[in-house]
Amino acid sequence: MKVVTHSGTFHADDVFAFAILREALGTFDFARTRETALIETADLVFDVGGIYDVARGRYDHHMRDLPRRPDGTPYSSVGLIWRDFGRNALPKLIPGIDEDLLDAVWQDIDQGFILAIDQADNGVASVNQGHLSLLIEAFNPTWASEQAYDDAFLEAADFARGILVRACQQAHAEAEAQSSVLAAAGKASDPRIIVLNHKLPWEKAVFEGGLRDLLFIIYPNEDSTSWYCRTVPPEPSSFGQRLSLPEAWRGLQEKEFSQVAGIADGVFCHPSGFICGARSQGSAIRLAEKAIAAGH
């Protein structure tokens, strides 16, 4: 297979598009050129050529009638390549990824990572200093450099792959966490309390998974020496609580907290009433049950 993009100065969209294609397609012949004859004979062309035609393997976006996302946002070359080749690239970027999580990870990367490059490349969003797109463009040779543009492009692509791998790992961990939370919810004897075996991000699962009855999350700290009883906020990223911990517990610690809360191994209750802790899972669950009884 022969793959072509444009020569000369490069941007984040063509660099990341190439990095994705290397994972999705494996080995292929690659050329950076603007020569029409070479472009016409290629099997896949992106970010050059003036044609968008998926059936012909043409993925340019620099025409008046350019391809757009369903919401109207213009695609850049990386958005188009990720749309059609991203799912095939993911098993290489995240070895061993569960097939059931592919779509969730693909979507997360598309909306939280690729979209920002599409917007920057098309001038839809402002690009401030430190933006990923500018970091990639910094790999272009300066006027005083003797480095060839093609060599600089490959160097930028290796850098881009590292970023993409880390972004995919983060998205994968988030998808696994969401799956774990929903599985725990399905096993819960009381829909108002979920017990997790690990400390992990749970808020997205609560709100996207429709866990409307959930009031408390129970989970261990990093070294499992204590367990937290955490209130659930009424909406994402809110500091409020669907049900606050009892006023009488707030600000207390250790023995005093244990006596007031009625458990043997209490650790603390935060003054704002959003989290408390105990040294055992069973006590943390009892704290949630006591809080529910006191609040209803």
Rank of each mutant, 00 (worst) to 15 (best):
P233D: 08
G49S: 02
Q170G: 14
A173G: 09
L214C: 07
R87P: 03
H62I: 11
R83G: 06
K204V: 11
S133P: 04
W249E: 03
D118H: 09
A31W: 01
D108R: 15
G186E: 12
I109Q: 04
L135S: 09
R166W: 05
D118V: 12
D150I: 12
G262P: 03
L200P: 05
G266M: 04
S244G: 10
R250I: 00
Y149E: 13
G96A: 03
I163G: 00
Q259C: 05
V78P: 03
A248K: 13
D158P: 00
H6I: 01
A185W: 12
Y59V: 11
I94P: 04
E40W: 01
R64Q: 11
D84F: 13
L214S: 09
L90N: 04
S180T: 14
A12R: 07
N128I: 07
A188S: 14
V54A: 15
L80C: 03
H61S: 10
T9R: 15
A173D: 14
P95L: 04
A17I: 02
E155T: 15
E222P: 07
N221I: 11
A183Y: 08
G209M: 06
Y228K: 13
S238I: 03
R58W: 09
T27W: 04
Q170P: 02
I117N: 02
A248R: 14
R279G: 10
A89D: 01
W249F: 07
A104Y: 08
P236M: 00
E99S: 15
L243P: 01
W143R: 14
D121H: 11
A12G: 15
L93Q: 04
V232K: 04
Q241Y: 00
P141F: 09
P74F: 11
L164E: 02
I51S: 04
L196R: 02
G26L: 09
G277I: 10
L164W: 01
I39F: 04
E35I: 11
D98A: 11
A284V: 10
P233N: 06
C168F: 00
A167H: 10
V4L: 01
K204P: 01
S224R: 15
G86W: 03
D118E: 12
D265F: 05
G79F: 09
F28R: 01
K2L: 15
K255T: 13
G79C: 09
E222N: 13
A138C: 07
W106R: 02
F274D: 08
P91S: 08
R64N: 08
A261D: 01
D98Q: 11
F268V: 09
L44K: 07
G162N: 01
E35R: 14
R212V: 14
S76L: 03
F30W: 05
L21E: 01
G57Y: 05
F46V: 02
T33Y: 00
H270Y: 06
V3L: 01
D29A: 15
S283P: 09
A24L: 00
H296K: 13
L101W: 05
D213R: 13
A188D: 05
